[in-house]
């Protein structure tokens, strides 16, 4: 969107087909739904804490994650940021509101989840997992799916970003700008 208005950007429009657009928006909604509910469920459960997940951390960054869990002060900050972060990211994706920022934030969060407890060979976690994983787990797959959303944005076509960025993009020649916006990387 930063290139919005330039003819070059307009020329790079990916021109989604209806099916492509449907698939991308559906993926955005599903991931947004997942984040939103994960966040709400944590906010509504007074007993929820990330302490268990963090203190089970393995691999290179385990010291950092464990130290976060060890201090009640930092733990409450982590819990707060995580729950509200999930809610905000979920809303961003579902509403198509500041979706690019939400997508990047979601990827960062998923990346942290992944490196905190990667399913590498030889690592056994006491926390029960709902499946069997070797290097690739669902966190990593969701992370990759969000990468797809990042490079194939749809929030300017279906989403509040259409209105949020309207003024900026409407400053130029509308049709070209919008075409660029809808196809922008």
């Amino acid at each position: 969107m930063t290139q919005g208005g330039s003819a070059a950007a307009a020329a790079r429009s990916p021109d989604y087909s209806n099916v492509q657009l449907t698939a991308l928006v559906a993926l955005r909604m599903l991931i947004g739904w997942h984040f939103f509910y994960e966040g709400l469920a944590k906010l509504l459960n007074p007993y929820w804490t990330s302490a268990g997940y963090l203190s089970e951390s393995k691999w290179w960054f385990s010291e950092l994650f464990v130290s976060l869990a060890a201090s009640p002060g930092t733990l409450s900050v982590v819990d707060f940021l995580n729950s509200w972060g999930l809610v905000a990211i979920g809303l961003g994706l579902m509403l198509g509101c500041l979706t690019r920022a939400a997508t990047i934030a979601g990827m960062v969060l998923l990346f942290l989840y992944y490196i905190a407890a990667p399913p590498f060979v030889g690592y056994v976690y006491a926390m029960p997992a709902e499946g069997a994983y070797l290097i690739v787990n669902k966190v990593l797959i969701e992370l990759a799916a969000m990468f797809v959303l990042l490079v194939f944005p749809t929030s300017m076509i279906f989403g509040l970003d259409r209105l949020i960025f309207w003024k900026r993009i409407a400053g130029g020649r509308s049709r070209e700008v919008l075409t660029a916006a809808e196809g922008v990387r």
Binding site: S13, D15, Y16, S17, N18, V19, Q20, L21, I157, A170, S174, R175, L178, T179, E182
Partner: peptide
Amino acid sequence: MSDERTNDVVGQAGQEPE
């Protein structure tokens, strides 16, 4: 065909501001 339809979507949206 898909191109046409996409353009249609874009076109519709594009016409509104005008």
